[in-house]
């Protein structure tokens, strides 16, 4: 479904991603975990087409991706950003934000689709004509998820979708993502610094450090401690320690 081969990303003269390769099967949720500066978000944004200056092989749905993405790509691949405060246009109502993808793709019947999208992410009808600053962090992230899903994509890229949220809200959003993934058979890539969050949603995950993938492990390996790379072990130990 998603294929990444020998991906290199440069910011000017600075190479931030080195030779990253992985595959994601249809319906799978793949995790990218690492500390800040490990390049995990850059990999995701490169797949999304938001980063210029990369080389290597990228393919989604069997279609090889070039530097420019067409509209069909954006219909099938969508993204949820980390900061729910920054990812919603501050001067647009929820209604307008949700209407935009529909207008771009020429999808008819905006009225019912918007109502249904709000229901799907369990937002009250009253939220429809509010501005982002009138919503809580969790509600904003729900709006962002609704926007990502409104044009029926098959791939969802999640960039730290819960790290700006309170833990109780994080639980709600993680449950929501799990439900939607199930209901819509989504293929997902989840980026997070929180190993527990990744372990909760992902079957397989890549551990990144300094722009490289150091190890790809399965959920089971994560749990029974058979990960080999020292950095992976370090992250696992930290995560256990913080759980207390």
């Amino acid at each position: 479904m998603i294929e990444v081969q020998h991906l290199n990303v440069h910011f000017g003269h600075n190479q931030v991603v080195h030779e990253v390769s992985f595959q994601v099967a249809p319906g799978e949720t793949f995790g990218l975990v690492g500390e800040s500066g490990s390049g995990k978000s850059t990999v995701l944004r490169t797949i999304a087409g938001l980063v210029p200056g990369w080389d290597g092989g990228l393919a989604v749905n069997g279609k090889t991706l070039g530097p420019k993405r067409d509209r069909a790509f954006f219909k099938s691949v969508q993204m949820v950003f980390q900061d729910p405060y920054g990812s919603l246009h501050p001067r647009q109502t929820v209604d307008r934000i949700l209407a935009e993808p529909l207008a771009v793709h020429g999808i008819p019947d905006a009225e019912t689709r918007i109502t249904r999208a709000l229901e799907e992410v369990a937002l009250p009808r009253a939220a429809r004509f509010r501005y982002p600053h009138q919503l809580s962090g969790g509600q904003r992230q729900r709006v962002a998820i609704a926007r990502a899903l409104i044009a029926n994509p098959s791939v969802l890229l999640l960039d730290e979708p819960t790290s700006a949220l309170d833990v109780s809200v994080q639980a709600e959003v993680l449950n929501l993502l799990a439900d939607l993934r199930e209901a819509r058979q989504l293929t997902c890539i989840l980026v997070s610094h929180n190993l527990a969050v990744i372990g909760h949603l992902c079957g397989r995950l890549a551990v990144m450090q300094g722009g490289r993938i150091v190890e790809i492990v399965s959920q089971a390996q994560l749990r029974d401690g058979t990960a080999r790379h020292p950095h992976t072990r370090e992250l696992i130990a930290l995560s256990h320690e913080l759980e207390g």
Binding site: A48, F81, S87, L88, H89, R147
Partner: peptide
């Protein structure tokens, strides 16, 4: 990120400028 999100809808640069950037 909100402009990145609009780019992710596949909107044309012209549309993004007129409807999302210019109003700001």
């Amino acid at each position: 990120d909100y402009v990145a999100a609009v780019q992710m809808t596949g909107a044309s640069p012209w549309r993004i400028i007129c409807r999302h950037v210019a109003p700001m």
